[in-house]
Each structure stands twice: as structure tokens, then as C-alpha cells.
């Protein structure tokens, strides 16, 4: 019997989740368009802002557009193809991983691919539109964009998985994990030049907005081996952290030490 590789299996389960999220067409359309309008409005505010102030610590509108486009595109892909991350803490707390543990393939992959968020298509759409129309990118930037997008996505998902894994230790982790993820997005939607001191430290550690968008943006504007290496290192560190925390959490869960009911 041929065994499907993990990426191939992931693609199949994620495709199933996407098909499931698209089952209610009216809801999907409403959410996608709602998100498009919402994101478009926020961009308009920034356009007005930069029309008035021209620059924030060296950041101009096209830099802001690159940042906004990138974070929307990252949140979009995360929500569409890895949508299970959003409610992962609740999934853990509800004991829904029991069934996955009786099955042969890796649990984390199954958790991430169990859901797909309709609004994420709206994020992805706005993200791409902004990147194409306002970010001042050319074809030559495409490889750097692909690099930054992929790395930012991995750091974002890794941080979100780490936050959700807190559910293995803390009963109230559901809203905590969501809040931390939302804070990370919030910090990722402002010009990087505004952070200094403590806020800069937070943006490059606890809520890694720095590695989700700021370093990728810097790399796109001035590609250098140094910023590429830094981003790659961040990807490895955050992915390893997420895998480690999830693994330890799962071990703890299977020992029955997690804050969950037992039958």
C-alpha cells in the first residue's frame, strides 16, 4: 500500500477544509466582500495619513502599502490553508485531539488543516491587490517577495501555534491565545520605524511582528545577505519553538496533566 507523503496528505485535508468553508456560498461571499471593504478602508486611512504627513521615520506610503499588503497576504494564506490555527486552543481544550491521536499521521498537521476561514480569502485578495497596485514592486522583486512572504507566514503560524499550545497548560488559554495572535497582527500593521526600546524588544521576541513583516519588508527594500540570514534564522527558531512547545504540551496532555476533563 502506497503511503501518501505528509505534504500531499496535508494538501488533501486542507483542500477538504476549503471545500467545507465554501459549502455555504452566501456566507462565504458576504465574509469575503466584508473583509475586502474593511481592509480597503484601512488602506484609505493610511493614504490620507501619508497625504498629510508624507513620511514616518523614513517610511512612506509605498512602504506602508508593502507592509499592509504583506501582512494581509500572510494572514490570508494562513487562514485559507492553515485555518485550524485560529481556534486551535479551543480544539485542544475541548479534547478534540483524542480522535486524531488514534490515527496514524502527525497531530499538528491535522489540527492546522481541519479548518479554513472564509474571511481569509478577503485578506488574501486585498493583500495581493495592495502589493500589485501600491507597493511599488517590480517583477525583479518577485523572488524576494516569495521569500519574505513564506518566511513571514512560517513565523506568524509558529507564533500562533505556540500561543495556542498554552492550552495544554492553562485552562483560559482560548481567549489568551487569540488575543496574543491579534496583538501580533496589530503590531504588524504599523510602520516599523515607530518601535524603539521596549516596544521594539516585544516586536522581535514575544509578538514577533518584526520577523513576520518588518524584516521581510526591509529585505524587499534593500536585499542583503544579512537581513535574509536573520529572517531565515528567525524562521528556524520560531518553528522549532512552536514544534517544541506543541510536542511538550501534547506529551503533557497524554500524561493527563493538562487542565481538561477526563472520562
Amino acid at each position: 500500500m502506497a503511503r501518501l507523503s505528509l505534504p500531499a496528505l496535508y494538501a488533501r485535508t486542507a483542500r477538504a477544509a476549503i471545500a467545507g468553508s465554501a459549502a455555504d456560498r452566501a456566507n462565504l461571499t458576504l465574509q469575503v466582500f466584508g473583509m475586502l471593504i474593511n481592509n480597503g478602508f484601512m488602506l484609505t486611512l493610511w493614504v490620507l495619513f501619508f497625504a498629510g504627513f508624507h513620511s514616518v521615520g523614513g517610511w512612506r506610503l509605498r512602504d506602508m502599502a508593502l507592509l499592509t499588503g504583506l501582512i494581509y497576504a500572510i494572514a490570508g494564506v494562513a487562514g485559507v490553508a492553515f485555518g485550524g490555527y485560529r481556534d486551535m486552543a479551543a480544539t485542544i481544550l475541548n479534547g478534540e485531539i483524542d480522535a486524531l491521536l488514534t490515527q496514524p499521521r502527525p497531530v499538528l498537521a491535522r489540527l492546522l488543516s481541519r479548518d479554513s476561514l472564509p474571511i481569509a480569502w478577503g485578506d488574501l485578495g486585498t493583500g495581493l491587490a495592495i502589493l500589485i497596485a501600491f507597493a511599488g514592486l517590480t517583477w525583479r522583486d518577485l523572488p524576494a517577495l516569495a521569500f519574505g512572504w513564506t518566511c513571514g507566514l512560517i513565523v506568524y503560524l509558529s507564533a500562533a501555534v505556540t500561543f495556542a499550545s498554552l492550552a495544554f497548560w492553562v485552562g483560559g488559554a482560548r481567549s489568551l491565545a487569540r488575543d496574543l495572535t491579534d496583538f501580533m497582527i496589530l503590531m504588524s500593521t504599523y510602520p516599523g520605524s515607530i518601535y524603539s526600546g521596549a516596544s521594539r524588544a516585544i516586536a522581535y521576541t514575544l509578538l514577533p511582528a518584526g520577523f513576520v513583516v518588518l524584516t521581510p519588508v526591509a529585505f524587499l527594500r534593500r536585499p542583503s545577505l544579512e537581513s535574509a540570514a536573520m529572517e531565515a534564522a528567525a524562521v528556524i527558531v520560531y518553528a522549532a519553538l512552536a514544534a517544541g512547545v506543541f510536542h511538550f504540551g501534547l506529551t503533557r496532555y497524554r500524561r493527563g496533566a493538562s487542565p481538561l476533563g477526563a472520562g
Binding site: F53, H54, S55, V56, Y190, S193, I194
Partner: peptide
């Protein structure tokens, strides 16, 4: 906590803006 975090970010933004007096700008 959320309020303080939001204030930190927004304050940083406006502080940065007000230090830059670009010609023709609103700063």
C-alpha cells in the same frame, strides 16, 4: 492590558510623526 498595548503603538506612531517636519507636510 490591550488598551496599554494599543496606546504604546499609537503613541509611538504619533511621536515619530511629530518629530518629522517635512516641507508641505501636516506635521
Amino acid at each position: 492590558v490591550f488598551y496599554v498595548l494599543l496606546l504604546t503603538v499609537l503613541t509611538a506612531l504619533w511621536d515619530k510623526v511629530s518629530t518629522e517636519h517635512l516641507p508641505g507636510g501636516l506635521a
